[in-house]
C-alpha cells in the first residue's frame, strides 16, 4: 500500500485537520507515515500545502517528488492546480470547486474549470454546499476527506474512527456532524468516479 498525497488550500481552511485524521488512522493501521507541513508566516491567508505520505513500507523523504503524488486533495480549485507537476500519471485530483478569492488577480473561474477538466481523473464539486446540506459549512474539509477516501487504501470505517477520536472532546453532536459530512463526501465521489 502506498498513498502519496498533496493536501492544498488557503491558510485557515482546515487542511491540516484532514492530515491529522488520516495520520491517526494510518498510525492505527500500523502504516508508515510522513507528513510535512509549513507553519508560520505562510498561514496568514496565503497558500498552504502539506505532503502526506502513507505506506506499508518505510518512507525515506518527507517530501513527495515531482510526478509522484497519487492524489492532490484541495479545498480550493486554483490551489489544486498549483501542484499539478506533482501528480503522477495515474493520479487523481479531488478538489472543492468553490473558489476562495482573496487576491485581485485570481484567474477567470472558467479558465480554472477548463484546466481542471483537461485533467483525466478529477473529482470536483461544491463541498461547502454539500457540507451545508448535511452538517454546516465548517465541515467542508470533512466532505473533502470523504471525497478523497475512495482513493486511499484505508477502510473508511477506520477513518471514521479517527474522526470520532479527534472530535469527541467537542461532543457527540460535532462527531455526528463530521461523520455525516465525511459519508456524504465519500458517496458523492464514488458516484463521480464511476
Amino acid at each position: 500500500m502506498k498513498s502519496d498525497i498533496v493536501l492544498a488550500g488557503v491558510g485557515g481552511q482546515g487542511i491540516l485537520t484532514i492530515a491529522t485524521i488520516l495520520g491517526a488512522a494510518a498510525l492505527n493501521e500500523n502504516l508508515h507515515l510522513k507528513q510535512a507541513e509549513v507553519h508560520g508566516m505562510s498561514q496568514r491567508g496565503g497558500d498552504v500545502q502539506s505532503n502526506l505520505r502513507l505506506s506499508s513500507d518505510p518512507i525515506h523523504s518527507d517530501l513527495i517528488p515531482l510526478g509522484g503524488a497519487d492524489l492532490i486533495v484541495s479545498l480550493e480549485p486554483m490551489e489544486a492546480l498549483r501542484y499539478l507537476p506533482f501528480l503522477s500519471e495515474q493520479g487523481w485530483i479531488v478538489t472543492n470547486s468553490l473558489p476562495f478569492v482573496n487576491i485581485d488577480n485570481y484567474p477567470e473561474m472558467s479558465a480554472v474549470e477548463e484546466e481542471l477538466a483537461r485533467c483525466p481523473r478529477v473529482v470536483s464539486f461544491d463541498m461547502e454546499a454539500l457540507a451545508k446540506e448535511v452538517a454546516s459549512a465548517r465541515s467542508s474539509n470533512l466532505v473533502l476527506l470523504g471525497a478523497a477516501s475512495p482513493f486511499i487504501d484505508i477502510e473508511p470505517e477506520k477513518i471514521e474512527e479517527a474522526v470520532r477520536a479527534l472530535f469527541i472532546p467537542k461532543g457527540e453532536k460535532i462527531v455526528e456532524a463530521n461523520i455525516a459530512a465525511f459519508r456524504a463526501g465519500r458517496e458523492r465521489a464514488l458516484e463521480i468516479k464511476k
Binding site: R44, G45, G46, L81, L84, P85, N105, Y106
Partner: peptide
C-alpha cells in the same frame, strides 16, 4: 534513479501571498 513523468505546471495559477487577517 527513480524518474517520474512530470506534468506541466498550470499557467493560470496566481501567487497567493500571506496577508494580515
Amino acid at each position: 534513479i527513480i524518474d517520474f513523468l512530470v506534468p506541466e505546471a498550470s499557467q493560470i495559477v496566481a501567487p497567493r501571498p500571506p496577508m494580515l487577517c
